[in-house]
Design a protein around this nucleic acid. Structure first.
Lengths: 198, 198
DNA sequence: ATCTTCTGTAACCACCGGTCACTTATTGAC
DNA sequence: GTCAATAAGTGACCGGTGGTTACAGAAGAT
C-alpha cells in the first residue's frame, strides 16, 4: 500500500470514529459534517474525498457493524447442549449491543429512519433482523419441538430484545438483564404459545 | 370567546394537524417550519405566535396525545373477570396506537430523542411508560398471584409492545397481533418467570 | 373616530449539507 | 533528478433551514 493510500485510510478511520461518537451522542441529523471533520482535525471539504454524503457514511457504519456481528457469530460454535445454554449464548451476544451505548443509539435511530425509507428498511431486514431472527429461529428449531413456527418465536424474541434495548437506552431501570433472559426463555418454549394453556 | 381568539385557536389547530401529518410522514427534524405553515396556508413567521419553537410543538403534540390516551383509559371500566379478558382490553387499546401510523412513528421518534435528552426522558417516563406500566401492573396485581413483581411484568409487556410497534412500523410481516397477544399473556403469567420451570 | 391590542407577514441572521476551484504532497515515467 | 499527473486536503461559496423581529393590518374598546 502506498503512502497516499495509507494516509487516506487513516483519515477515513479517524473520521469514522469521530462520526460514530457524535452520531451516538447527538444523533445523525443533529451532527454536522463540519463537526465530524473538525473534531478529527480536518476541514469540511475533506469529508467528500471519502464519502459522497453524510447518509452514505451512516449506512457504512451500520453495515460495518452488522458485518462484524455476523463474523462474531460465525466465529463461535458453542454447540449448546440444551435450550437454556443456547439462549444464554445468544443473549451474551445481544447484551454486547445493549452495553455499547453509542452503537445502540445509532442502531435505534437507523431503525426509525427505516420506518420511513424503503431502501433503509430493506437493508435492515436483510441485515440486523435476518441475523437476529436466524439466531433465535435456528435455536428453536434445534431445541424445541412444537408446531409453532420457529420464525415467529425468533421475531417475538427480537421484538422483546428491541423493547429492552429502548428500555435500557432510556435508563428506566425497572428491568435488568436477568429478567429479560427469563422472559426470552419463556417465549422460546413455544408449546404455551400454540395452545393458550399453561 | 372573541373573534380574534377563535381565529387564533383555529389557526393553531390547523397548524397542529399539518405538523402531525408531516412529522409522521417525514420526521421531526426533516420537517421545516415553513412546510408546516405553508401546507396549512400561512407564512413561516405566524408559527411563532403559537409556539416558541418546533420542539415545543412536538412536545405539545406528544402530551396532548398521551392526555387523550389517559382519558380514554379512565373513561372505560370494563371490569374484566379474568386475566385473558383484562389483557384483551389492554391490547385493544394498544393496537389503536399501532394502527395510527403517523402517531406511532412520531412516538418512536420522540422515544429516540429521549434517549439523548433528560427532560424528554422524564416526560416519557412520567407519561407513556407510567401509563403502560400501570395498565399492565394493575392487571397483574389483580389477576395473577405470585411473588414476581407486577411492575416487572408491566415493563416486560411494555417492552414487548414497543418491539412489536417497531416490527409493525417496519412492516416485516412475520408477526401478527394475535401472536403478540399470546406472548403477552404468557409473560403475564408470572409463575414461570419467577422459577424458571414450565 | 381613534387609539390599543393582537394575528400574520416577510426580510433578516447564523448555520446546514453539498460543490468546486484551488493548494500541497506523493507518485511514477523518463 | 525532473516534471507532469494524480491524489488528499482546504475554504469560499450556494441554496435552503430554524429561528428572530420590525412592521402591516384587522379587531376591539372607548
Amino acid at each position: 500500500m502506498s503512502k497516499q493510500q495509507e494516509k487516506s485510510q487513516q483519515t477515513r478511520h479517524e473520521l469514522e470514529a469521530a462520526a460514530i461518537r457524535l452520531f451516538g451522542q447527538k444523533g445523525f441529523l443533529e451532527t454536522s459534517i463540519a463537526e465530524i471533520t473538525s473534531s478529527a482535525g480536518y476541514s469540511k471539504g475533506s469529508f467528500y474525498r471519502h464519502w459522497e454524503s453524510k447518509g452514505e457514511l451512516f449506512l457504512q457504519i451500520i453495515e460495518d457493524k452488522l458485518k462484524s456481528y455476523r463474523e462474531q457469530r460465525d466465529g463461535q460454535h458453542p454447540k449448546a447442549r440444551d435450550l437454556d445454554e443456547a439462549m444464554g449464548a445468544i443473549w451474551d451476544f445481544l447484551e454486547t449491543i445493549i452495553d455499547d451505548n453509542d452503537w445502540s443509539r445509532i442502531f435505534l435511530e437507523f431503525t426509525m429512519h427505516a420506518t420511513r425509507n424503503k431502501a433503509l428498511r430493506q437493508a435492515l431486514n436483510q441485515g440486523a433482523y435476518r441475523l437476529s431472527n436466524e439466531l433465535f429461529a435456528s435455536l428453536v428449531g434445534e431445541h424445541v419441538d412444537s408446531g409453532y413456527p420457529p420464525e415467529k418465536i425468533g421475531a417475538l424474541n427480537t421484538a422483546l430484545f428491541e423493547g429492552f434495548l429502548i428500555h435500557s437506552a432510556l435508563g428506566t431501570g425497572v428491568l435488568n438483564k436477568t429478567d429479560v433472559r427469563r422472559a426470552a426463555l419463556l417465549l422460546a418454549r413455544s408449546n404455551a404459545l400454540k395452545s393458550n394453556a399453561e
